[in-house]
Simulated scan of single mutants.
Amino acid sequence: MDPMGGDYRAQARYFAPLAVLDGDVLTERQEELARAVLEAVLLAGLQPYNAEAAADGEETGIGLAPVPGNSWALRVSWQQDAAAATHLPTDLCYAQQAAMHQALRTILAAHRFWIEDGPLGEAPVVRGLTRPVG
């Protein structure tokens, strides 16, 4: 997963377009935010979703999706390994997904991202690099 020899900023730039789910296209502002989000999660030791690896069945990682109607926000979600999830009870899969989303919310908040308020188990929506004061 380290194509850039430990340079997290370079890795975030590399993975930003690959981590976008469902082939969505990001705006310039979302692309900038995607790089910052991925740098934070890489620093936390989490791997980004990789569309190229997903084509080979390796679907686990942090995925990004544009928020409909908002050209500058991103939804940041954990993509579970689909093959492993088939061997687990549905409630366990849901609990794991909710826990990872809560972990993402905590990590991103610690890095001072502006995160939209929402239920703890849902994928966080990141609105900016820092929360506005006031």
Score class of each variant (00 low, 15 high):
49 Y>M: 03
128 G>Y: 03
101 H>K: 01
41 V>N: 14
94 Y>S: 04
121 G>E: 00
22 D>R: 15
51 A>K: 14
51 A>D: 15
104 L>W: 09
83 A>E: 13
43 L>K: 15
115 I>R: 00
88 L>Q: 13
36 A>Q: 07
81 D>I: 10
116 E>N: 03
107 I>V: 08
51 A>E: 13
51 A>W: 06
89 P>R: 15
58 E>P: 00
70 N>K: 06
29 R>C: 06
127 R>D: 03
98 A>W: 00
97 Q>D: 09
95 A>V: 03
46 L>D: 14
88 L>C: 01
81 D>S: 03
77 S>Y: 04
24 D>E: 12
47 Q>N: 13
40 A>P: 05
18 L>P: 00
38 L>H: 04
34 A>E: 09
31 E>K: 07
14 Y>T: 01
56 D>S: 15
56 D>Y: 11
20 V>S: 02
6 G>P: 01
117 D>L: 02
49 Y>V: 03
18 L>I: 03
125 V>H: 14
78 W>T: 03
24 D>V: 02
133 V>R: 12
19 A>N: 01
107 I>S: 11
6 G>D: 02
92 L>G: 04
52 E>T: 07
122 E>I: 05
71 S>Q: 13
103 A>S: 00
40 A>T: 09
106 T>L: 02
27 T>K: 10
122 E>D: 07
14 Y>M: 04
120 L>F: 03
98 A>T: 06
94 Y>C: 06
66 P>F: 00
80 Q>F: 03
112 R>S: 10
88 L>E: 15
104 L>M: 00
72 W>Y: 14
85 A>L: 02
134 G>E: 03
35 R>D: 00
